[in-house]
């Protein structure tokens, strides 16, 4: 049997051949539904990007879904506060795989102008795996669209045979931080917090500076 494929004359020009993975990526990247989710100022530009002038509907993204179950992409559009971050992580955990995260603007990326604030989490990447960071305060809609393009490119390059959501093992959930005590508690730090509180010599439980790197 030869490897050559013969295309009948009447179908010439109508058949194209690609890899399954590419077709899979191509199909997914143009049906990326963002979550209807806004945090702060950036959310207005997120909406402006979806409105008439910038019209992200051109890439199949006009259908913003309010429910995390129906969304593929969460745009962290604004300042992440300690009071809000448990809810954001819960929303992320409620999204179905495959899912993507864009950190939009300076605040979501690293705290931005409000970084020193006592209620501000300096960057959503402490809790969520971020795929694309979009700089700006706030980013222009063009900037956000460039971020969407980067997500598209990432999706296009994912191969169907090694994506984690077809693996046997479930994908671990993001750890939901706890709020209600004196401060935000990262469950991954729980043991360390216990150890430090019990250590007799620890005078300041919070602000002890770290040794400078050599």
């Amino acid at each position: 049997m030869s490897d050559e494929i013969t295309v009948p004359d009447e179908l010439k020009g109508n058949v194209f051949i690609t890899k399954l993975s590419e077709l899979y990526g191509w199909g997914r990247k143009y049906s990326l539904w963002p979550m209807f989710f806004g945090l702060a100022c950036c959310a207005i530009e997120f909406m402006a990007a979806a409105a008439a002038r910038f019209d992200t509907g051109r890439w199949g993204m006009d259908l913003a879904r309010a429910s995390p179950r129906q969304a593929d992409l969460i745009v962290i559009s604004g300042t992440v506060t300690k009071k809000m971050v448990p809810k954001i992580v819960t929303l992320y955990n409620q999204m179905a795989e495959p899912k993507y995260v864009i950190s939009m603007g300076a605040c979501a990326t690293g705290g931005g102008p409000f970084k020193e604030g006592y209620n501000v989490v300096s960057g959503i990447d402490q809790f969520l795996p971020v795929d694309v960071y979009v700089p700006g305060c706030p980013p222009t809609p063009e900037g956000l669209i460039a971020g969407y393009m980067a997500v598209h490119e990432k999706i296009q390059n994912e191969r169907i045979n090694d994506v984690p959501w077809y693996e046997k093992d479930p994908i671990p959930k993001a750890p939901v931080p706890l709020l209600g005590g004196p401060d935000l508690i990262d469950p991954r730090h729980m043991d360390e917090i216990r150890a430090r509180v019990r250590a007799p010599q620890s005078a300041a439980v919070g602000g002890e500076p770290e040794k400078e790197d050599a």
Binding site: S122, P182, M190, A204, G206
Partner: peptide, 27 residues
């Protein structure tokens, strides 16, 4: 040094003296 480098937790948190992580109320 960045703010993260100056704080032990590398994050914007502090826990008061006497805070007991075994016994607190999520509220």
């Amino acid at each position: 040094r960045s703010a993260e480098q100056r704080v032990h937790w590398r994050a914007n948190v502090q826990y008061p003296q006497g805070f007991d992580p075994e016994d607190w109320d999520l509220g």
